[in-house]
Design a protein around this nucleic acid. Structure first.
Lengths: 215, 215
DNA sequence: CGCTTGTCGAGACTCGACGTCTCGTCAATA
DNA sequence: TATTGACGAGACGTCGAGTCTCGACAAGCG
C-alpha cells in the first residue's frame, strides 16, 4: 500500500530520488500482464498467475526496484488496483429508498468487478489472500472503506439502533455473496443479481426482530 | 476425487494391485500435516502450505504413488476431507420452523469448519481453488451436495414457487457469508453468527415479493 | 515354474517462481 | 567533487510442482 514510505523524522534525503516513471511503469505492467494472463480470448478473466519477474521485465525495470518499494506482490496489485479504482466507481447516488440505494450500490460494485483489468486483478488478489494471511489482511484493509460505505448506507435507512439487525452481518452477507460468486463463477454477478440481492438484503434489514416463523 | 479410477471396459487387471494401506497413509498424512502446518500453538488454523513432497515423506510413500492416483493436491485434500466429513456433520434434524432448521443447519456447518483438521484442510482447499480454476471446479462439485441440502431446506419451508424469492440467491448468501468470514477471519463463525444469519435469511425468504420499501 | 503387467518406495531431474545479493551506472545533495 | 542512494540487469540459493527412471515386489497367465 505505502508506495511512498513514511519519511518519518524528516530525513535530508540525500542521493538520487525515486523514479516516478518506474513506479507508474510497474503499476501499468502489473495491470497489463494480469489482464493478459487472464486470457486475451477467453473473457473469463480468472487472472492467471503473474510473476514478479514478468512484471519487472514488462516494465523494463530491475526486480529489486519492485522489492524496494513494495513488500509483496499483493501490495503491488493493491496499488495498481487503487490507481484504477479511482475513476471506476461513481460516488454514492442520490438517496432514494433503501432498496434502490442498495441496488445501485451493488450494481456499481458488480459492474466494476466485471471490467478489465479490475476483474483479473481482483482474482489475483483473492488468490494471494487465500495463500498468505498477510495478503488477506491487506485486502481487508483495502476494502474497508467500501465496506464502511455500505454499512453507512444501511445505517442511514434502518431505524436507529433497531435491535436484532446486525449491520455487519448484512455487510458480510453482501460481500460474501460477491466474493463467493466471484471465486466460484457458478452464477453471474450481473445487474439482475444485484437487484435480487438488494431486495433480499432490504427485506432482511426491515424485518427487525419480529419472530420470523411463518407458521 | 476418483481415487478408484473407472475400470471402464472391465480390464482383466493383471499386475500388482493397489496398496490400500498406502492410500490411507497418504490421506492421513495430508490431514496430519495440514493441521500441523496451521500451527500447533496458534489455533488459527490458516492451513500453511503443505507440499506433496512432505505428504509423501510423512506417509512413507513415493511421490509417484500420489500422482498415480490423484491428479492434483486439491484432489488429495478433497478425498481426505471426505474421509473425515462423513462422521462430522449430523443428518438434518427434525423439521421445525424455517428459522430453527436454518439455524441448526448453519450452526452444524460452522461448527464442522471450526474443528481440526477440517478447518485447516478447508483453508488449503480455498487456497487451491483461488489458484486453479480446476481446483475451483472440484471444490464446487464437492460442496454441491451440501448446497443442495440447504436449497431443499429452504424450498421445503417457502410457499411453493413463491415468485421473487430466488433460492439460489439465498444459498449463495449463506455460503458466501461463510466463506467470506472463513477467508478473511475478521468476524467469528460461531453459533451466534449462525443464529443471526438464519434469522436474516428467514426474513428474506418469507418476505416474498412484497415491495420492500419501508417508506 | 517363468513371463508379463503394473504398483511399490526412493530419489534424481527439470522447470518456474520467490526473494536476496551484487555489480556498474546514474542523479542529486552537500 | 565526494557521498548517498536509486537505477537496470542479472546471478544466485531455495523451494515446490510434476515427470522420469530405477530396482524391487506382487499378482495373473501360460
Amino acid at each position: 500500500m505505502s508506495s511512498a514510505p513514511e519519511s518519518g523524522a524528516r530525513r535530508p534525503h540525500t542521493g538520487r530520488r525515486r523514479n516516478e516513471e518506474a513506479r507508474q511503469a510497474i503499476l501499468d505492467a502489473a495491470l497489463r500482464l494480469t489482464a493478459a494472463a487472464a486470457g486475451p480470448s477467453a473473457g473469463g478473466g480468472d487472472g492467471g498467475a503473474v510473476s514478479i519477474d514478468a512484471i519487472a521485465r514488462e516494465a523494463r525495470v530491475g526486480k529489486q526496484t519492485i522489492y524496494r518499494w513494495w513488500p509483496s506482490k499483493s501490495a503491488v496489485l493493491l496499488d495498481a488496483l487503487a490507481s484504477v479504482a479511482e475513476q471506476q466507481i461513481p460516488p454514492s447516488p442520490a438517496r432514494g429508498s433503501l432498496h434502490a440505494d442498495l441496488a445501485a450500490f451493488l450494481a456499481d460494485t458488480f459492474r466494476a468487478a466485471r471490467r478489465e483489468p479490475t476483474c483479473s486483478v481482483l482474482h489475483s488478489l483473492l488468490r494471494e489472500a487465500a495463500q498468505d494471511p498477510h495478503a488477506s489482511e491487506l485486502l481487508r484493509l483495502h476494502t474497508a472503506a467500501r465496506r464502511a460505505e455500505l454499512r453507512a448506507l444501511l445505517a442511514g435507512h434502518t431505524s436507529p439502533q433497531a435491535p436484532g439487525v446486525d449491520l455487519d452481518l448484512l455487510v458480510d452477507q453482501a460481500y460474501g455473496f460477491f466474493w463467493y460468486r466471484f471465486l466460484l463463477g457458478h452464477a453471474p454477478l450481473d445487474d439482475a443479481a444485484a437487484e435480487q440481492l438488494a431486495r433480499s438484503l432490504a427485506a432482511a434489514a426491515t424485518a427487525n426482530l419480529s419472530a420470523c416463523e411463518p407458521a
